[in-house]
Computed example of a mutant assay.
Amino acid sequence: MSEASNIRELKNVLEAALLTSHQPLSLDDMLRLFTERMERATLRMLLDELKQDWAERTMELVQVASGYRFQAREKYTTYLMRLHPEKQVKYSRAVMETLAIIAYRQPVTRGDIEEIRGVAVNPNVMRQLQERDWVDVVGQREVPGRPSLYATTKHFLNDFNLRSLDELPAMEVFVQPGA
């Protein structure tokens, strides 16, 4: 087999795996697809080529916190939503404010969140965030009472199309002048 056809076959295997996976695939997941040893640099090169191959198509290969996945380009989402017209979950302002505080200040305790928001945290808010798998307990603060420390999860990063917290918009974007 020529090198060009071998590369095409490797990309076909990656493409099939990524298109059929229900969750993002890590580099380690993808390396397991092949019996012969492959360098991570080679795999990344193949993924870059695959991304280019799909540059003018309806789907795009994106990297999120837990790996790579194919997803529909944004301009097609309104059409695709017509296939599944169920109402999108609306989150209260309290839920979104709490999530933002956790994302930008993590790890934080309920007390930290209450101090920033100026109001008590409703237990339902924390439950919603944990049920959605956007937030999890990552430890306890070493102070009397040992309150739980909350942080965002990889699922949060995946759902918001982020590879890491460094990709969050600058907090200044949200701060209103004179506030």
Rank of each mutant, 00 (worst) to 15 (best):
E97R: 01
S66R: 06
L27H: 01
L61P: 05
L33Q: 04
E74G: 12
M81E: 14
T152E: 02
L165Q: 04
M96C: 10
R163S: 09
V64Q: 00
L46H: 05
V143D: 08
F34S: 03
A55S: 13
N6S: 14
L19N: 11
P144T: 05
E86G: 10
A65W: 01
K75D: 14
G139M: 00
Q52K: 14
R69Y: 02
L168P: 02
F174K: 02
F70A: 04
K90I: 12
T109L: 04
Q52W: 12
V95A: 06
E131P: 02
Y79P: 11
L99D: 05
S2Y: 12
V95Q: 01
M38P: 00
E142N: 13
S148H: 13
A170T: 07
L129R: 01
N12W: 05
K87H: 11
N6D: 13
P85E: 14
I102C: 03
V95F: 04
A65I: 05
K90P: 06
A65S: 08
T77Y: 11
F156T: 00
N158L: 00
L18K: 03
D53T: 11
Y79N: 15
D159I: 00
R57S: 08
Q106N: 05
E9R: 08
L19H: 11
N124C: 12
H22W: 14
R37T: 12
A55N: 08
K51W: 11
R44T: 09
A41Q: 15
D28E: 09
F160Q: 03
Y104L: 05
R146H: 09
R132K: 15
L83S: 13
A4C: 12
R93W: 10
R32P: 04
L18Y: 05
L61W: 00
A179K: 13
K87D: 10
R57G: 10
R141K: 15
L31W: 06
V89Q: 14
D112M: 05
P24R: 00
M126P: 06
T153H: 02
I113T: 07
L25S: 02
A94W: 01
G111V: 14
N124K: 15
D136Y: 10
L10W: 11
T78D: 11
L46P: 03
Y68C: 03
K75L: 15
Q71N: 04
P107R: 05
A4I: 15
R82D: 12
R93Q: 11
M59V: 09
R117Y: 08
L99P: 00
W54V: 09
F70M: 06
L14Q: 01
E39I: 07
L46C: 02
L27T: 01
R127C: 11
G118K: 13
L168I: 06
D159E: 08
R73T: 05
Q140P: 03
D159M: 04
Y150Q: 04
L157V: 06
M1H: 13
Y68V: 01
E36D: 07
M126I: 08
H84D: 14
L149V: 06
G178C: 11
D29P: 04
L61Y: 04
S164T: 09
E56F: 13
R82N: 15
L31F: 01
N158Y: 04
P144L: 10
D112Y: 07
K87Q: 13
E60H: 03
Q71W: 03
K154M: 09
E39Q: 09
V135K: 01
S26C: 05
T98R: 02
M38K: 07
S164V: 01
L50T: 04
M96Y: 08
N161V: 03
E114C: 07
